[in-house]
Design a protein around this nucleic acid. Structure first.
Lengths: 137, 137
DNA sequence: GCTTGATATGATGAGTTCATCAAGTCAGAA
DNA sequence: TTCTGACTTGATGAACTCATCATATCAAGC
């Protein structure tokens, strides 16, 4: 899945973002960003996820090379594979600060724009015309 | 009507990455990172995509608030909505350098990328996962 | 008006990812 | 050696994303 050796960089990069494109995985990475290492049990507690569900997302992160793990006795410890993962989350947060800030300005000054920044696809918020990410391709 | 401010940040952040999780969209953003603005025709030429296909991805990027556009006559110009978008691509590239470098030295393909300078207190103070104050972001 | 070039939107089937639950592995305790 | 706790893997239907093609819009000329 992750053999990206001789593909154009934009494909490899998109693939990285794909690995990050799930709320639970971001949550996991944020937890791991805030401590040197964390056990699965701790993550279950913090996230409230079912063990198998959490484990699936940890498996994805492992496959993408974003986290590493080792077992000590019956406990498994996880940590970020690279400090740059935390950097990426940090820059993403900066971008979101701009993005959300400006979109709320637009919204309050221009009334109802058909612009929806970063709203996830799905049956949520029905107040908008049919222009939602992922809605109807 | 949008109220993303009330969702946990990791959901909003994951959604941002979702908007970036496609090779063509990354390619488009890299093109836009390397010039102040670009027309759709130019992007068709560079990417080799069919017009409607490109337009769909541009629509996604617009909806996510990552690019803006304006029409002048019959030509539409696109540009990045925020400089931080380029920053994010830059940091992603750094992470990829580590990630791929740790498994092989196939980084020669990284050479043809637009190199974007990060904003002064750049998030590239690597080495430490930067334990952001106030863990819940 | 009508035509043409530049872009955008809609519809659809194929492919992918997700959440859930069942079953499996691995290590230490009894 | 069986049990139990801590995780991981497998299977499956629902939901989502994609590429393709058809259709629509918009601006400039004729």
């Amino acid at each position: 899945m992750i053999q990206q050796e001789q593909r154009p960089l934009y494909e490899i990069k998109a693939n990285l973002f794909k690995g990050l494109a799930h709320p639970y995985r971001i949550h996991i990475l944020e937890i791991l960003s805030s401590a040197p290492e964390t056990t699965v049990s701790e993550m279950i507690e913090v996230t409230g996820l079912e063990a198998s569900h959490l484990s699936q997302h940890l498996a994805v992160l492992r496959r993408y090379g974003l986290v590493t793990s080792d077992r000590r006795g019956s406990v498994v410890f996880y940590r970020l594979a690279f400090a740059q993962v935390a950097d990426l989350l940090f820059v993403a947060r900066q971008l979101l600060t701009e993005l959300l800030g400006s979109s709320s300005e637009q919204l309050s000054s221009l009334g109802d724009l058909p612009v929806i920044a970063l709203t996830p696809p799905g049956p949520t918020h029905s107040a908008q015309p049919a222009t939602q990410p992922g809605g109807g391709w």
